[in-house]
Simulated assay, not measured.
Amino acid sequence: MTAQKGKDLLLKVDTDGAGDFTTVAGLRARSLAFNAATVDVTDQESAAQWRELLDGAGIKTARITGSGIFKDAESDETLRGYFFAGTIRDWQVIVPDFGTVEGAFQITSLEYGGRHDGEVNFELGLDSAGALSFAADA
Rank of each mutant, 00 (worst) to 15 (best):
L32W: 05
E123A: 15
G81Y: 01
E77T: 15
M1I: 15
E52Q: 13
N121G: 12
G125K: 04
P96T: 03
Y82R: 01
I59W: 12
F105S: 01
E45H: 10
I94K: 02
E111A: 15
F122H: 04
R89C: 08
R115V: 11
Q92M: 09
N35R: 11
D14Y: 13
Q44Y: 08
G118Q: 11
R28I: 10
A135H: 08
Q49N: 15
A25C: 05
I94L: 05
A104L: 03
G125W: 00
G81W: 03
Q4C: 10
L27R: 10
T108Y: 07
N35V: 02
S31E: 09
G6S: 15
Y112G: 08
P96Y: 04
D40I: 11
D40W: 13
L11S: 09
G19D: 11
T2F: 14
I88H: 03
V95S: 03
L9H: 13
A36C: 08
L110F: 11
A3K: 13
E74S: 13
R28Q: 13
A36Q: 13
G113F: 07
V95C: 02
T23P: 03
E119W: 13
A73N: 13
E77S: 15
A136D: 12
D43T: 06
D72W: 06
V24G: 06
W91C: 01
L124M: 14
F134V: 00
R28W: 05
K12P: 01
V120A: 06
R89W: 02
L124V: 11
T108Q: 07
V39N: 12
A57F: 14
D127M: 06
G125P: 00
D14E: 14
T42K: 06
A47P: 00
T2W: 12
E111M: 12
D117S: 07
M1W: 14
A47Q: 10
Q106D: 01
L53D: 10
V93I: 14
A37T: 14
D40T: 06
G81N: 13
G68E: 10
F34I: 00
D55I: 07
K71R: 07
F83M: 03
I107D: 03
F84Y: 13
F21Y: 11
G99K: 06
F122D: 02
T42D: 04
T100F: 05
K7Y: 06
G125L: 03
V13E: 00
Q49R: 14
F21H: 02
V41C: 07
K5L: 09
V41D: 12
E123Q: 14
G26A: 06
A37F: 07
S67P: 00
G17A: 08
L79K: 04
D40V: 11
T87E: 02
V39S: 12
V39A: 13
V39F: 08
F70D: 02
I59Q: 15
F105G: 00
N35L: 09
E102R: 15
R51Q: 08
T87S: 01
S31P: 00
A48H: 12
A47T: 09
V13K: 01
G58A: 14
T87I: 00
T61P: 10
D90T: 09
